[in-house]
């Protein structure tokens, strides 16, 4: 199992190798990449902040849970921090399974859980300003009174 929060570029080949297993019939790879727009605004780049040690701990807990739930052979979950340009990968998930169906489900489940729980934050930088994004799925927003969401 490979779990990492890093300022370095994410290496897809490394993640695939780490997630691989002789018993796997499928390896599913998900990349979250930086989009040039959000909610109608042009985004120039993103700046990611993280609580690295806790983020790795929560990512590991989620990976262990995914392994159990979807009978994964192995998996890799990596999140990048710092300044990311348009098109660069911020999140890399690779999961291996005996068969393909569970690999898609596991990848989807992991992304959703990461967006709820892992202490990582993105700041959008526009031509005329910047703002920290508050994830609509995050536990913090979910606990807030409905009027604040």
């Amino acid at each position: 199992m490979l779990i990492r929060v890093t300022p370095d570029e994410l290496d897809t080949a490394e993640a695939i190798q780490a997630a691989g297993s002789p018993a796997a019939g499928a390896i599913n790879v998900f990349l979250g990449v930086v989009r040039d727009n959000n909610l109608g605004r042009r985004v120039q780049y993103l700046e990611y902040d993280a609580y690295p040690s806790m983020a790795e701990k929560v990512m590991r807990e989620l990976a262990v849970e995914a392994k159990e739930r979807f009978a994964l052979e192995d998996c890799a979950v990596l999140h990048r921090t710092g300044r990311l340009e348009i098109g660069e990968a911020s999140l890399l998930i690779a999961v291996s399974c005996g068969h393909r169906a569970a690999s898609f489900e596991a990848g989807h489940w992991l992304v959703n859980e990461i967006k709820k729980k892992v202490p990582v934050w993105k700041k959008e930088v526009w031509e005329d300003g910047e703002a920290w994004v508050e994830g609509p799925e995050s536990l913090g927003i979910q606990q807030a009174p409905a009027s604040m969401r």
Partner: peptide, 10 residues
Amino acid sequence: LAMIPPVSGG
């Protein structure tokens, strides 16, 4: 102790 504002990773 850490204060964790709404996360927005991914």
